[in-house]
Each structure stands twice: as C-alpha cells, then as structure tokens.
C-alpha cells in the first residue's frame, strides 16, 4: 500500500485524476520509469524472447512532443491469450500498431518470429462505398480459400448470412465478425483483435470471447486482445497487461481471482489496486466481477465524466 500510494503521488505522470495504474502488486511488473534512462532500467537487461511469436523491449513512441509509449516490454506466446487493458489514451492501439509494424517505434526493439502469421482485426473497419465488393470476394482476396472455406469461417463467427452482401452494407457488428473471419482464414499463429466487441451487444460479447477461447484451444494460436473493459478481461485472458503509456503491471487475473491463496500471495493490495484502476468508472468490480466500493468519496471528482469516456 505505501508503495502504491507513493507511486500515485510521486509518479509525475500527468495531472491529478488522470488515469493512473498502480498494480505493481500483481508481482510480475517492473518499476515505473519516466525518464528513458534505458541503461538503468531494471528490466532493460532482459533479452528479447526469441521463442515468443513476438517480443518487444523498451518500446517508446512520441508524437508532437507527447509521450505515447515509454519503455514497453511485451512477449506474445503460442496458445496464450494476452489482454492489453488501460484507459482511453493509454497507448493501447499505438502499441498494437507498433507491434504489427504499422508504425515505427522511436526506441526499443521488436522481434517477430520467422513463422509469424498475423490475423488482425482492426478497431475500425469502415468501408468506402465507392468500392463494390462482396464479403466472399474480400475474404478470398489474397487468401487461398474457396467459397466453402469462407462459409465455414463466417459460420464460426456467426455471420453466415452476409456471405453475398456488399462490404459497404454491413453493420458495425457484422463488419467486426467478418473481419474476424478473415483473420481466422489466414490460419494465423497470432490473432490480434483491437477492441473486438465494439458494436457487438453484451450477449454477443460473451459469445465472441468464448469463441476466441475455443479456437485458441483447437488451433493453438496466440491471441492479443485490446480492451478498455476490465470486466471482460477477467473471464477471457491468460494474462493481462495493464498499459498506461508504460506497462503498469501484467498478471493472470482469472486464476488469481479464483485462487484461495490469492490473498496470501498478493495481499489485499492487488484487489485494491484493480479497484484503483477501476475507479475511472463510476463503479468498480472486484476480481470475481462483483461490484465493490470505489476509493473514498471525494477523491475522484471527475468520476462521472470519466465514466462517460470509458463506457462509450
């Protein structure tokens, strides 16, 4: 607790009330660093993990003088579901873009295993209506798949009926499922899904995560999910990486939550720490998904405002 408090006050990571992630208590995190002294960082000495599908060390990114990412280390392995959580503006999508090679990091190094095949579902999939194309055609574009393969992939994601639809006519939820089907058709060993539940209703959301978990079991691919919703994270991931420009923590939330030794291992700090994270909503969930009291009243004046921001 003292460490957490000190960190929040002394971090100097932005204005008071800004989303601050203080979850070092989950035990697998590194210290916070803010000045980019690469050599002095405690974990900078860890080499890239060459067995990982994708391994990154010390990733830093700045745009227009603003730090977006700082000293980020992350490894993605076969068969593991890793969820990247963090408040809006924490740099989650930027990190994904850097990992996928869509954006070049200013500092750090990234290793992509030779056999890496990425199936990617971007956060937004807006189709320009000027381009006429059916879903089937798009799902076969650059992929060795026949109509039966496409139909099977669409059935898997519950979007069978759109196979002959024009891309531009899809709803947001249909487009998300369709793009997930394309990602699966590529036979990836790493599936990267950026906020995959946008435009999907709550039941659809649970279904989607169940599907991803099942396919991971069947095919053994690694998964990187991006979410701003901690509730969803709890049920779906093997490992959670909490990002707020730097990696605040990474841990195994579901296992931790159900483990009776949880308290003994991590103390009450971890639960409280998640509550610290969660208080950016106007409510919080404990690790079993139950609503718990947030930090004392008055300490979070902007709660309702941030609630709108996060629950959009």
């Amino acid at each position: 607790m003292p460490e957490t408090t000190a960190d929040r006050q002394g971090g100097g990571r932005g204005p008071a009330g800004e989303a601050t992630c203080a979850v070092d208590a989950c035990g697998c995190s590194h210290a916070h660093h803010h000045h980019g002294e690469v050599m002095s960082r405690p974990r900078a000495s860890l080499p890239l993990d060459s067995a990982a599908l994708l391994s990154a060390r010390g990733v830093g990114l700045a745009r227009s003088g603003r730090t977006i990412l700082e000293g980020v280390d992350i490894d993605l392995h076969d068969g593991e579901i890793v969820t990247l959580i963090g408040p809006n503006g924490a740099g989650k999508t930027s990190l994904v873009r850097v990992l996928l090679g869509l954006e070049r990091a200013d500092t750090g190094e990234i290793n992509r295993r030779r056999d890496l095949v990425v199936g990617y579902a971007p956060q937004r999939f807006d189709i320009d209506a000027a381009l006429p194309m059916t879903v089937e055609r798009f799902l076969r574009l650059g992929i060795a798949a026949n109509r039966a393969d496409v139909a099977a992939a669409l059935a898997e994601v519950g979007a069978s009926r759109v196979i002959d639809s024009q891309l531009a006519s899809l709803s947001g939820g249909e487009a998300q499922r369709m793009v997930l089907a394309r990602a699966l058709l590529r036979r990836p060993n790493l599936l990267v899904l950026d906020e995959p539940v946008r435009g999907v209703d709550y039941a659809g959301e649970a279904e989607l995560y169940t599907l991803i978990g099942r396919l991971r079991g069947e095919r053994g691919f690694g998964v990187l999910l991006v979410s701003h919703d901690l509730h969803v994270v709890m049920g779906a991931s093997d490992r959670v990486v909490c990002l707020n420009r730097h990696v605040c923590c990474s841990g195994v939330p579901r296992v931790v939550a159900k483990d009776p030794e949880y308290e003994r291992l991590f103390g009450s700090d971890a639960a409280r720490a998640f509550a610290v994270y969660e208080h950016h909503h106007d409510h919080a969930h404990d690790l079993a998904g139950e609503t718990v009291a947030t930090v004392p009243a008055g300490s979070q004046p902007a709660a309702s405002e941030t609630h709108d921001r996060i629950e959009q």
Binding site: L100, G101, V118, P122, I127, M133, R182
Partner: peptide, 10 residues
C-alpha cells in the same frame, strides 16, 4: 483500397 492498415498488417 479496402482497408489500408489491415493490408499492411497482413
């Protein structure tokens, strides 16, 4: 033309 980022990521 369909999706620039997706194509690059692929």
């Amino acid at each position: 033309a369909v999706h620039h980022e997706l194509a690059v990521a692929e």
